[in-house]
Amino acid sequence: MLTVLAADFVPSRNGFPFPNWFPPGTPVVELPTPFGVIPIGNANGGLCGGMVFTAIDLFRYGQLPPPDPDRPVVRYLGGRLVDSFNLPFGFLKYYDWQRRPTTSRYALGLNVQTGVSSLTIDNEWPRVQMLLDAGQLAALGLVKVYSLSPREMGKNHQVLAYGYDLDDDQTVTLKVYDPNYPGDDGVTLSLNLQDAEAGRGVTHSREGESVRGFFLTEYRLAEPPLFGPA
Rank of each mutant, 00 (worst) to 15 (best):
P179T: 07
L131S: 14
V116W: 06
A161D: 00
L131E: 13
T173Q: 09
R105M: 08
L160T: 00
G109R: 05
D122L: 14
T120K: 09
E124L: 05
P101G: 00
G163M: 07
Y146Q: 13
L137T: 00
Y162V: 02
Y177P: 00
L119M: 11
Y164A: 05
K155E: 13
V159A: 03
V145L: 06
G135R: 05
Q170P: 02
T171W: 08
V128N: 01
V112E: 04
T120D: 15
E152C: 08
N156P: 00
P126L: 12
V176C: 05
R127F: 06
Y162D: 01
E152W: 03
K155F: 11
N123H: 09
Q136T: 02
L137Y: 01
P126T: 05
F91P: 04
D122K: 08
R127L: 13
L110R: 15
P150W: 03
V128Q: 00
N123K: 10
N156K: 01
P126H: 12
L108G: 12
L110V: 14
D178T: 02
D122A: 08
R100V: 00
L131I: 10
T120I: 10
N156R: 03
G109N: 09
A107N: 09
G141N: 01
V143Y: 00
Y106H: 10
R151Q: 08
T171P: 11
S117F: 05
G141Q: 02
S147E: 11
L110Y: 14
A107W: 12
R127E: 15
K93V: 10
E124G: 01
S117G: 06
Y162N: 06
R127A: 14
L148W: 15
A161C: 03
Q113F: 05
Y164C: 12
S118H: 12
V112F: 04
M153K: 03
L131G: 14
N156A: 04
K93H: 14
T173V: 09
N111G: 10
F91S: 05
G163W: 11
T114S: 10
K175C: 02
F91N: 04
I121N: 06
L160A: 01
G154N: 13
S104V: 07
E152Y: 08
Y106A: 02
V116G: 08
R127V: 01
F89N: 11
K175Q: 15
A107E: 07
V176M: 12
W97R: 08
T102H: 10
A134Y: 13
Y177K: 02
D165C: 09
L108N: 10
L140F: 01
S117R: 12
V143W: 00
L108R: 15
R105I: 13
L119C: 01
P150H: 04
L140Y: 01
L148P: 09
D96Y: 10
D165G: 11
A138S: 12
Q129G: 07
G109W: 03
V172T: 07
L148A: 13
V112A: 06
W125V: 15
K93C: 11
S117K: 04
P150N: 02
S149M: 14
Y94G: 10
V172I: 15
Q98C: 05
G115C: 07
Q113E: 15
T120W: 08
Y106G: 01
T120P: 11
T103Q: 06
W125A: 04
D167P: 09
P126S: 13
Y95E: 14
